[in-house]
Amino acid sequence: MSERGFNRVAGELRKQIITGHLAQGDRLPSEAELSAQYSVSRSTIREALRVLESQNLIVTTRGASGGSWINHPNRDEIAGYLETGFKLMTLALDMPSVEALLEVRAIVEVPAAQLAAQRRTDEQIEQLAESIRSHKPSAESHSVHRSFHGIIFEAANNALLHTVSQPIFAVVDERFARDKAPPEMWEEVARFHEEIFEAVRDQDSKAAGELMREHLAQLTTAYLAMTRTSIREEASMHSSSN
């Protein structure tokens, strides 16, 4: 069986799926029919189908009435693929800098805050308010702070913007040990979140975007300080061990 062969078949079927020529729920031809269509062995077809199934692009069932049907991954699955690819990319690039990570966050979060101010619902305003009430000036409330940003993306009502943000957050979350953050950082985070909330609540799109930009600049400064602290501690431990 040729690796090149099954990759070619998988690639051609994938192209038909993502261009809409094969729609959600469509049944693929049988292995024998695909084998004849692409002039490859049935084992090559089976391997190509396994590739597509691993990407959640098809669902395959076995048995007399079995077959393969087109499946469209949901938003969380797509975000998972992006997260895996993004993490592998950061490893290949020897991990991007703090500034690079926060620049990318600004690219997606500033317009998200602006859109949230324009499109938010009363229910989302209440969710943001509850997040604000749950804030604590410590790393223990990181999940609350993180959920605040998630609600902003939901309120922006742009599924693509929300999806591409998740792998960025995942890398940032893994990069920093927030237990090293000073209490004043969390106090600043809480203050910015409250001001962003007020701008979104009041449907002040310009203020929401500007405040989000300032908030991310504040995080950049804090994360750089945390990084320097970690480097000093690691150097000290290495020196002590020698």
Rank of each mutant, 00 (worst) to 15 (best):
102 L>Q: 03
125 I>Q: 15
70 I>F: 09
75 R>A: 14
110 V>K: 11
109 E>Y: 11
123 E>A: 12
182 P>L: 15
68 S>Q: 12
155 A>C: 05
75 R>E: 13
179 D>R: 15
153 F>E: 11
131 S>F: 02
79 A>H: 01
145 H>P: 02
105 R>L: 05
130 E>K: 10
60 T>G: 07
131 S>W: 00
72 H>N: 06
68 S>W: 04
76 D>C: 03
103 E>C: 00
135 H>S: 03
149 H>R: 10
136 K>F: 06
156 A>C: 10
158 N>I: 11
71 N>C: 02
84 T>S: 15
78 I>M: 13
161 L>P: 02
112 A>T: 10
122 D>K: 05
109 E>N: 14
169 F>P: 00
110 V>E: 09
154 E>A: 08
88 L>C: 07
164 V>L: 04
68 S>L: 09
138 S>Q: 05
78 I>A: 11
177 A>P: 07
166 Q>V: 14
128 L>G: 04
160 L>Q: 02
87 K>P: 06
89 M>V: 06
161 L>W: 00
130 E>Q: 15
132 I>W: 11
94 D>K: 13
115 L>V: 13
125 I>H: 11
91 L>K: 14
163 T>Y: 07
123 E>S: 09
162 H>K: 12
123 E>V: 08
86 F>D: 03
144 V>P: 01
177 A>M: 05
59 V>A: 09
177 A>S: 13
181 A>V: 00
92 A>E: 14
93 L>I: 04
73 P>H: 08
172 V>D: 01
61 T>S: 09
105 R>E: 09
123 E>K: 06
86 F>W: 14
66 G>A: 09
144 V>L: 07
78 I>W: 09
143 S>D: 10
166 Q>D: 12
72 H>Q: 06
174 E>W: 04
79 A>V: 05
174 E>A: 12
77 E>M: 00
92 A>P: 00
109 E>I: 03
76 D>T: 13
142 H>W: 15
79 A>L: 03
161 L>H: 01
173 D>R: 04
154 E>L: 04
112 A>I: 07
163 T>D: 07
153 F>D: 09
80 G>D: 15
106 A>R: 15
158 N>K: 14
142 H>E: 13
143 S>C: 07
83 E>I: 12
152 I>H: 04
71 N>G: 00
77 E>D: 02
78 I>K: 02
154 E>Q: 05
125 I>A: 13
92 A>C: 06
